[in-house]
């Protein structure tokens, strides 16, 4: 699961930071900085979405328990 996330991370940052003109084998300075920022942002997005999802599912379970309690009354 982690490796899937990692592979997507590499794919996304390569697509967004490396131009498709391959004039040289080394990473340029701009490309390197872009990759560093890309990783930071990607992981930030990953974390935020994870939090949001877990909040949503928590809210749902709370709603469900409320409904169940009301049904019992």
């Amino acid at each position: 699961m982690m490796s899937d996330m990692y592979n997507r991370l590499v794919g996304a940052c390569h697509r967004k930071c490396i131009p498709i003109k391959y004039y040289e084998p080394e990473l340029g300075k701009g490309e390197s900085v872009c990759l560093d920022r890309c990783v930071a942002k990607y992981l930030d997005v990953h974390e935020r979405i994870g939090k949001k999802l877990s909040n949503m599912s928590q809210g749902e379970t709370e709603d469900l328990t409320k409904i169940n309690l009301q049904d019992k009354k």
Partner: peptide, 24 residues
């Protein structure tokens, strides 16, 4: 030439992303 550069660059990209990923 493009293909060789592409391969090299991709591997370097992977290496750099992996470094940052592990730091985080």
């Amino acid at each position: 030439k493009c293909i060789l550069n592409c391969m090299d660059k991709y591997l370097r990209t992977n290496q750099r992303v992996s470094q940052r990923f592990h730091e985080f």
